[in-house]
Design a binder for these strands. Structure first.
Lengths: 232, 232
DNA sequence: TCAAAACCGAGAGCAGTGCTCTTGACGGAG
DNA sequence: CTCCGTCAAGAGCACTGCTCTCGGTTTTGA
């Protein structure tokens, strides 16, 4: 064990360094990072990288999982910093945390939520970390329902056959979640993703200089739609 | 003119054929299409392509503009097929048209609304065609306001400094558009983009088999948020 | 303890990419 | 008919992901 662990330790450090250099390249070169380039940066030969990652896609997968966890950490920490029953505060905090993380790590965000790489299929290892942000939003719904503090405004109700789909999916989260509320929560999650993507990918109108205020207002609209009570 | 135009005609046909082959490759290989591959498909040598497109990015730009116009045509046609005062019908028709187009041309949609290509900056030729879909939505707002048929539900109002930004931007569209309504319209547009992206990029939960119904319901929620009157 | 097994880095090599440059042939314009 | 512009072709450069082999080191197990 002591002798073998020194090799294993060096190997783990090597993997970490490769991932760190690759993450740095990702920030500048975008999704098309080159194994040879990271190998050059590390003073190695390209073929040596393959001792640690069997392919470029495997390296990308490792970076994707790390990015999902980094985003999940940020979102969950922001949510945990709020009063449990301050539903609207938690909603805004999680949304802002996701946006802040995306603005700080644009290339990683593009890797997670941008167009999928053509030949690349995300392995199952990624679906767990990928669900952490939306699950945080579901947690807000759960706490709000338990406290009886969620009142969605009147509006379109899901009809068949969607009603059963939503009800089944809602039951998989927690029993008191209705399909109608789940749909509104998913609308909020979709809006959050769209807001960040538009801002990050440059599709936001240039005549909106106060982007923080715009983001907060648009997420507030979705909080209204979900039925989160106004902050007192 | 007659003699020179035969040359120009052949050249124009060549450009069209290159774009057609490239679009075909785009559907299979995604964003990383190869000039050499399209040249091979046309029985040419790669360097010959450069007689018609100075770089791969120029070819991509041409495809992007064509795709924007194709999407714009579909959206505007769907909108024009509706009764002018059937605001909700127009909203659903345009949303469905955008989704149908995206599902029929996933690679082109990813090219337009996916993560930007790292070294590539969209030239100004693209911003005109790119604005056609959102401008169609603005047209629904304009007709609705002129007919006095839009009643947004109560909810968060934009505060300073966002209020002025939105008001200025709204004035640039048409005078009677308020900043608050514009923000709700932009939320609808953001939601539409997010819905399509989630479905296309495989982030939609697999337990929602009736995707058409889900899409219609979510866009109906946004119609409620905007204040489009219910269909009678 | 000492040989066998596993691991590792370096290098060559293959097939592919975008792009540049030169060469030679063809066709329209004066 | 001659010139000039346009064209396809080919060679070549620098780059990519990836495979394989060759030595050298480290770890393991008998």
């Amino acid at each position: 064990m002591p002798a073998s662990s020194i090799r294993a330790r060096v190997r783990a450090e090597m993997i970490d360094e490769i991932k760190a250099v690759a993450r740095r390249h990702l920030a500048t070169d975008g999704a098309n990072l080159s194994l040879r380039a990271v190998a050059r940066d590390m003073g190695m030969v390209s073929s040596a990288i393959y001792r640690y990652f069997p392919s470029r896609d495997e390296l990308l997968t490792a970076l994707i999982i790390e990015a999902y966890d980094s985003l999940g950490d940020a979102v969950e920490a922001a949510d945990a910093d709020c009063e449990r029953l301050d539903l609207r505060g938690r909603w805004h905090a999680t949304c802002r945390a996701a946006r802040d993380w995306a603005l700080a790590h644009p290339a990683e965000y593009a890797l997670l939520y941008g167009s999928p790489v053509p030949g690349y299929a995300a392995p199952d290892d990624t679906i767990g970390p990928a669900q952490r942000p939306p699950l945080t939003l579901v947690g807000i719904l759960r706490d709000g329902l338990e406290a009886g503090r969620i009142d969605p405004p009147p509006g379109t109700e899901p009809a068949e056959p969607l009603r059963d789909d939503l009800a089944d999916l809602a039951q998989a989260f927690f029993p008191s979640l209705t399909g109608a509320l789940l749909a509104r929560g998913m609308a909020g999650w979709t809006q959050l993703f769209g807001l960040i993507s538009f801002e990050l990918f440059g599709r936001l109108n240039r005549t909106l200089p106060h982007r923080d205020a715009y983001f907060d207002h648009q997420t507030a609209l979705m909080a209204d739609l979900i039925g989160l009570p106004p902050a007192e």
